[in-house]
Simulated assay, not measured.
Amino acid sequence: MKQSLDHYRKAFLIYLDKFRGYSDLTLKSYDESLKEAFSFLEVEEQGSHTTFNLMPYRLHIAHLKAKTISKKVSAMRSFCSYLNDQGEKVSLKADESIKVPASLPKPINDTHIQEALSQAPLNEKLVVILLYTLGLRISELVSLELKEISSKWVRVTGKGQKSRDIPLLSSTHALMQAYIDEMRPRRFLFESEQGQLSENSLRYLVTKCFKRIGLKVTPHQLRHSYATALLNNNARIADVSELLGHASMATTQIYTKLGSSLKMQNYLKAHPLCQDDDENS
């Protein structure tokens, strides 16, 4: 490889911070996992191609919980993906996934979203609003074409090239129209002079928007917030599943678990007997 692994590790962490908006705790976890993995990797080079054999590392961490192993291997997988994006030819061996229980998503409080929006310029505001009011994946937002937008609906092409129609709030449509009038995109909603904006460009706008109020928020958290808000306000799970573009309602059901968890937390805080119980414990 042209540069040392430590050089790329540092550059990778900067990328995760600036463009992906990862929290300080997550960055620290990635850094520790990569440093640890580098101590055990078997590096095989054939011409310009490099292969990292994770087997010695997997044996070293085999005693850990499945979820912990999955996170550590995922860090290496993301690192190698980054290297390939930088023009290095890299592949992994022994990086097979470990099945772990699904974790609950972390939605953003609507108050925080509104506070961030109140300070945001037009382009940041529109990206956040579309993710929050349409529940889009970042890949879907990048690919959104002008021809798929009407005054009341947006047609989105999701995973497996499946299309779905999502209701568009009148306020969101007005904001979108103001952006179109100002930016004059030709085909895609989000464009530059060089063409369609990248996913990283939109992620960066979300990061900037929430950084002003001291939060690190990802586009996917806004999608979580959309789904959670609908279910907490008694939307049918079948409808939410369709709006999100989930292939199965089983995927959507994780949000119902989150709703139950929040209800329990609110109950424990609000009910007087629960408060008495906390004081006596």
Rank of each mutant, 00 (worst) to 15 (best):
Ser70Ile: 03
Leu144Pro: 10
Lys152Ile: 13
Gln46Arg: 14
Ala270Ile: 00
Lys159Arg: 02
Tyr132Ser: 06
Pro121Thr: 02
Thr133Ser: 14
Tyr179Ile: 01
Asn123Ile: 10
Arg164Leu: 05
Ser23Asp: 03
Ser248Lys: 15
Leu197Ile: 03
Val217Phe: 09
Ile213Pro: 14
Thr228Glu: 07
Ser103Pro: 00
Asn280Trp: 04
Lys159Met: 00
Leu16Val: 06
Gln275Ala: 13
Tyr82Trp: 15
Ala178Arg: 15
Ser150Leu: 13
Tyr30Arg: 02
His220Ile: 02
Val156Gly: 06
Gln3Phe: 14
Leu268Cys: 03
Glu124Lys: 07
Lys216Phe: 11
Gln119Phe: 00
Ala247Asp: 08
Ile61Leu: 10
Leu168Tyr: 11
Met55Gly: 01
Glu115Ser: 07
Ile149His: 08
Ala227Lys: 05
Gly160Met: 05
Ile61Gly: 11
Val217Ile: 13
Ser143Pro: 03
Glu140Met: 04
Lys67Thr: 14
Lys263Phe: 06
Gln114Thr: 01
Arg212Gln: 15
Gln46Ala: 08
Phe19Pro: 00
Ile108Asn: 01
Leu168Ile: 06
Met249Ala: 09
Leu146Arg: 02
Phe190Trp: 03
Ser78Val: 08
Ala235Pro: 10
Ser281Arg: 14
Gly245Ile: 06
Leu205Ala: 06
Gly245His: 04
Glu32Val: 06
Lys152Ala: 15
Ser81Glu: 15
Asp17Phe: 02
Gln86Phe: 10
Val73Glu: 03
Val217Met: 07
Ser39Thr: 09
Ser70Phe: 07
Phe40Asp: 14
Gly135Lys: 12
Arg155Val: 15
Ala247Gly: 11
Gly158Ile: 05
Ser261Arg: 11
Ser198Met: 03
Asn234Asp: 15
Leu175Tyr: 09
Val156Ala: 10
Leu141Gly: 05
His224Ala: 04
Gln194Ile: 04
Leu130Gly: 03
Glu32Ala: 10
Phe210Ala: 09
Lys147His: 14
Asp31Gly: 02
Ile113Asp: 00
Glu148Trp: 06
Lys106Val: 12
Gly195His: 01
Lys159Phe: 01
Asn123Pro: 04
Arg58Lys: 11
Leu41Gln: 01
Ser39Met: 09
Asp110Asn: 02
Leu244Gly: 09
Ser260Tyr: 02
Val128Thr: 08
Met264Leu: 12
Tyr22His: 12
Ser260Cys: 00
Ile61Asn: 08
Tyr267Lys: 13
Lys89Asn: 14
Ala178Cys: 12
Leu16Tyr: 08
Leu197Met: 15
Leu258Ser: 03
